[in-house]
């Protein structure tokens, strides 16, 4: 019992630190997880690559998925129920620093939001944010349409996938009311039917 509580405590602190220092999205947590595995012996490099594969094959933010999976794996040595509790503690550890930091940033921003310098900064920042989203779009598109191949040729293009993308894009333009969730479910079914 004591050992389990100590494990939960250590897990929370270690995941809190990952959440505090990993800047720039889910994959940024990766180097920190490698360190954690080496420092504690909780999991190996191979476990990590499995976790990434599972996290990418399930919905939800990557960082949260990985924390949940690790939290379960580590504490399930004590049984399934303690494992489930561990699967809650690890992701809560990851998000706690985010919540604290964002609350502080929000407070500061709302105090200075009428300052012209803050508005000038946002004028540049918005364009950069937009650029980052566009580049993320291109990397998702590359994986979706070209797979993991490095050489680009007509045969390597996944035309079926490209066609599905065009159809869905057309739907979003023509029928503005259609909910994205509906389109994602539709795409998953198409993917299964046509073995994409």
């Amino acid at each position: 019992m004591m050992a389990l509580l100590l494990l939960y405590g250590e897990m929370f602190v270690r995941f809190f630190l990952v959440g505090l220092f990993a800047v720039g999205g889910g994959l940024a947590t990766l180097p920190f997880l490698v360190d954690m595995g080496e420092a504690t012996g909780w999991f190996t490099q191979l476990d990590i690559s499995n976790m990434v594969a599972i996290s990418e094959s399930t919905p939800g933010p990557l960082g949260i998925n990985m924390a949940t999976y690790i939290g379960f794996q580590i504490s399930s040595e004590f049984g399934t129920l303690p494992g489930i509790l561990g699967a809650v503690i690890a992701p809560v550890g990851v998000v706690t620093p985010s919540v604290i930091i964002i609350l502080i940033v929000s407070k500061i921003l709302s105090r200075f939001k009428d300052s012209k310098y803050v508005q000038y900064a946002f004028y540049g920042l918005r364009a950069a944010s937009f650029g980052l989203i566009a580049s993320a779009l291109l990397s998702v598109a590359k994986i979706a349409f070209l797979g993991s191949q490095e050489v680009i040729s007509a045969e390597s293009v996944n035309w079926l996938c490209l066609a599905l993308s065009v159809v869905i894009f057309t739907v979003t333009v023509k029928f503005k009311k259609v909910h994205p969730i509906l389109l994602i479910v539709f795409a998953a079914i198409m993917g299964i039917i046509f073995k994409m």
Partner: peptide, 21 residues
């Protein structure tokens, strides 16, 4: 099944992000 579903979902995600931006 999971891999095929994800092939389709990725196509949707590209289209949805494009339309959002």
């Amino acid at each position: 099944v999971v891999q095929h579903a994800f092939g389709g979902i990725r196509a949707a995600v590209v289209a949805l992000i494009l339309s959002a931006i």
